[in-house]
Design a protein around this nucleic acid. Sequence first.
DNA 1: AAAACTCGCAACCGCCTAAAT
DNA 2: TATTTAGGCGGTTGCGAGTTT
Length: 333
Amino acid sequence: MAYITWKLSPLHHSASSRLPVTLAPGMSETRGSHSKHEDMALNRGPWTVEEDKLLTHYIAYHGEGRWNLLARCSGLKRTGKSCRLRWLNYLKPDVRRGNLTPEEQLLILELHSKWGNRWSRIAQHLPGRTDNEIKNYWRTRVQKQARQLKVDANSSKFRDAVRCYWMPRLLQKFGSSQTMQYSVEANTNTTTSDQVQHRPCQETISPSMQYCQLGSSSSHEPQPPENLSAVFPPLPVNMSEFPWRASDEIHGVAFNLFSSGFSMNNAYDLGTCDLTPVSASAPIYSDLDYGTDNNDCSNYNGDNLWSMDELCDMLKSYVSGADIKVPFSDHNS
DNA sequence: AAAACTCGCAACCGCCTAAAT
DNA sequence: TATTTAGGCGGTTGCGAGTTT
């Protein structure tokens, strides 16, 4: 098998990319990364087109792994670590690029609520997405909201807000974007990254459903760290505890998201959530919204239904205990 | 128009663990 | 068993591009 796919880093499109830096041996290089035979200067910083080609061709012939050997034999003046990172996060053909879909965002929120900052583990359940990308998403989007609210991203208040307002909104989007499908095997008990990314589709299920099944296998799953009470609190069975009622009228739309399937036992069982009232009036996204190519979601603007400002206002209202007005976008109007 | 500021993200750092010696 | 090495992971940094002032 040879990879002939060639992708240019966005940096390569820029005429003013920062230049790679060549370091003499011993200049602030990663601990233990030098062999005694390694005598040449190492490049650091952005990868050049030539370096990418070299790495891609080498892996096409020799396969992945043995990164230090690769670094020495390929002619690249890079550390093995650097080569590995470049390949896994950028050059590997099945790396998906572009904005995260609502479905993916929802899954990240769900999984992070369960596992905390286990980025690589979370990434295993988002085929084609890298841990780095998910980590960046969390830091730039989610933590930003927490900062604006002046609350800790791991605080129960913020988690409640996310669970009550952000996730339902994503579900709303998700409910109207059923064209997005994942090739994920239903039984994920022993799933590995490779299995998720490369195996043929045996059953098409939504990530949320996948997650539900994950949850059902929890006896084999390590528990989240203690300091992560960082799980979202279970949705209250008694909706009177909730900032809104089980069925709220929002701009003329009966918002009945939590009416079926949530309980203390399946707080994350989003897959059983009744989306009908929502999707009936929800905006319809065409393939164009997500990009018709599964590897290209760049056409999808993840914030066009719910802007960050909107979200921030709502979360602020929730944190301050004020009445909530949930905007509802009606594309028919 | 330009300076200041913000954002997104690729790449690096350093710690940890497992495998090899 | 102790030490070394390689690979993996989460945290952090720094730069280009875009936006605001």
